[in-house]
Amino acid sequence: MVDLSQYLPILLFLFIALGLSALFVFLPMGVSRLTGAHNPDAEKLSEYECGFPAFEDPRSQFDVRFYLIAILFIVFDLEAAFLFPWAVSLDLTGWPGWITMMIFLGELAVGLAYAWKVGALEWD
């Protein structure tokens, strides 16, 4: 059974870290109102550009290769996720477990080789 008392400190840590960083963000906003540093105007609040309004919406369409990288990442991340329990239980599963994993890795190596061959990993 999992020792939940080891996870409670993480939850407490999460609350404290959240509080601390929220304090860091919101406290200076209050302080700047008190000190008079808070003095916004239209030019100051415009986005960073070369002195004139942006011509087009900054959130534009992007190169499809970024999607491809994200999908490949999901596949390899899942593969790594399968490797973690295998790595700690190798003494229990022995040679059959090892061979199983080698076949699994072989399947994904084929995928990697295919991605490489068709040039999905090229950036230029």
Partner: peptide, 29 residues
């Protein structure tokens, strides 16, 4: 830990399903 127990079952009793998952990942890629 339960990660060890999971591994001990997954790579012995359920290895066919595990390899099938590998094939699915390959197809997805």
């Amino acid at each position: 830990g339960n990660i060890d127990s999971l591994g001990a079952v997954l790579y012995t009793d359920y290895l066919f399903l595990f390899e099938a998952a590998g094939i699915i990942l390959l197809v997805a890629m």
